[in-house]
Design a protein around this nucleic acid. Structure first.
Length: 200
DNA sequence: CGTTCGATGCACT
DNA sequence: GTGCATCGAACGT
């Protein structure tokens, strides 16, 4: 049972998409091999009224993809060293997205360790659950960079599959790593899962 | 156990 | 010039 998520999946209220992405499988095919993992943590960023959303300051050269078609990858560079990947949600003109924050590695563990080792010396020795724990770590492990910005998640290189998995229990909390909009419980995660980011 | 802090580059004001 | 949707090492208790 493998089904690539259609664009209609992303063309929905963002909180719904965030919840539904839990348990789905993010896949990245590159010349170095295929790497994939089950999504265990995600955050919703919704509209210009959400102070933590990149659309809070209105349309810019950096965030224009948020205003466009759902089902597109919005990737940006942060803190001088990390790429973060989002799935654009809701109809055109409604700027919103879901940040993918953590995966349980499924395939391509070897290439993931190779990529992680390129930055941290102990990358080769990382436990499976540590490979894609955190939004910066998972893009590193999957080889996602600005090259994937604007990639179509309904295409054949970077996409999300439904394999009929249902991880539980699912919890909600405020979003992590932001200083505004912390009152909104828009972080969705598999409670107790070893690959979820945050305090151990 | 907890908190602080440096690395590092770019979009935005 | 400022401030990040981070990470991990270093330090304090």
């Amino acid at each position: 049972m493998k089904r690539r998520l259609p664009r209609s999946f992303y063309d929905r209220p963002t909180l719904e998409v965030a919840r539904e992405l839990i348990g789905k499988v993010l896949v990245h095919r590159t010349p170095h091999g295929v790497a994939s993992g089950i999504i265990v943590e995600a955050e919703a960023y919704i509209g210009e009224e959400d102070p933590a959303c990149h659309a809070a300051a209105g349309l810019t050269k950096r965030n224009y993809l948020l205003y466009g078609r759902p089902g597109i990858a919005y990737v940006y560079f942060n803190y001088g060293m990390h790429y973060l990947v989002n799935a654009v949600t809701e109809a055109e003109g409604s700027p919103a997205a879901v940040l993918i924050r953590a995966l349980e590695p499924l395939t391509g563990l070897a290439v993931m360790r190779r990529r992680r080792a390129a930055l941290s010396p102990n990358g080769h020795d990382l436990a499976a659950h540590a490979l894609c724990r955190g939004p910066g770590n998972l893009t590193r492990a999957l080889g996602i960079t600005l090259e994937q910005n604007s990639a179509d998640l309904c295409g054949c290189h970077l996409f999300v599959e439904d394999r009929g998995l249902a991880l539980e229990p699912v919890g909600w909390s405020p979003r992590i790593g932001i200083n505004v909009g912390t009152d909104r419980p828009w972080r969705c995660f598999v409670a107790g899962h070893g690959a979820v980011s945050g305090r151990r």
